[in-house]
C-alpha cells in the first residue's frame, strides 16, 4: 500500500470521526473541513487535478463556511452540559451503519475482478474538460445552472423572516395608522 494513500486515508477518516462524534459543533465543522481537504488530496493523488481543486473551492471554501454560519445563527455552538448530543435510538443507528459497512466490505472483498492494474495515468487538461463541458455536456450544464438559480432563490425565500399575517408590511405609511 502506498504510504501517501495511507497517510491521507488516516487523516480523512480521523476528520470524519471527529466531525460526527465531537460534542462542540464548531469543532465538528472544523473536522469536516479537514475531511474535505483530505478528500481533495486523495483526488489529486488519483490524478484528478481539476476535481481536487473544485473540491477545495466548493467544499472547504463554501460549504464548510456555510455550515459554520448555520451553527452560529442557530446557537448550536454552545455545548451545554447535560444536553443530550446523541439521540435516544443511537444504538439502532450505529447498528445500521455497522451493518451497511459490513455488507459493503464483504461485497468488495468477494469481488476478485476488482484486483486489476491501474492503467497509465490519463492526461486530462483543464482545457479539455472545459471543451467537453461546452460540447458533450452542454445540456446538463445548462440544467445545472437553472437548478442553482432556483436553489438560490428558494434558499433566500426559506430563510427570509415571515411577516405575521394581517399586519401590513412596515413602510413609509406607518405613521398614518392610529
Amino acid at each position: 500500500m502506498n504510504p501517501v494513500f495511507f497517510i491521507l486515508a488516516v487523516v480523512t477518516l480521523a476528520g470524519a470521526l471527529g466531525a460526527v462524534a465531537l460534542r462542540n459543533m464548531v469543532h465538528c465543522a472544523l473536522c469536516l473541513a479537514v475531511t474535505f481537504i483530505g478528500i481533495a488530496a486523495l483526488f489529486l493523488h488519483q490524478g484528478a487535478q481539476f476535481a481536487g481543486l473544485v473540491q477545495v473551492l466548493v467544499y472547504v471554501g463554501a460549504v464548510a463556511v456555510l455550515i459554520v454560519f448555520a451553527i452560529l445563527l442557530t446557537r448550536s455552538g454552545d455545548a451545554r452540559k447535560g444536553v443530550a448530543v446523541f439521540s435516544r435510538s443511537w444504538k439502532t443507528g450505529l447498528l445500521t451503519a455497522a451493518a451497511t459497512l459490513a455488507t459493503l466490505v464483504a461485497a468488495i472483498v468477494n469481488s476478485p475482478g476488482l484486483l486489476r492494474e491501474a492503467p497509465r495515468a490519463p492526461e486530462l487538461s483543464v482545457r479539455q474538460i472545459g471543451l467537453d463541458l461546452m460540447s458533450q455536456w452542454l445540456l446538463p450544464l445548462e440544467i445545472l445552472g437553472l437548478l442553482l438559480t432556483a436553489t438560490m432563490i428558494g434558499a433566500v425565500i426559506l430563510a427570509m423572516p415571515e411577516k405575521p399575517s394581517g399586519e401590513p408590511a412596515p413602510g413609509p405609511e406607518k405613521g398614518a395608522r392610529p
Binding site: 466531525a19 460526527v20 448530543v85 443511537w90 450505529l94 445500521t96 451503519a97 459493503l104
Partner: peptide, 11 residues
C-alpha cells in the same frame, strides 16, 4: 458508514 452513523445518531 461514518456519515450514515452521524446522520442517524446525532440530534
Amino acid at each position: 458508514a461514518i456519515g450514515l452513523a452521524g446522520c442517524l445518531v446525532r440530534r
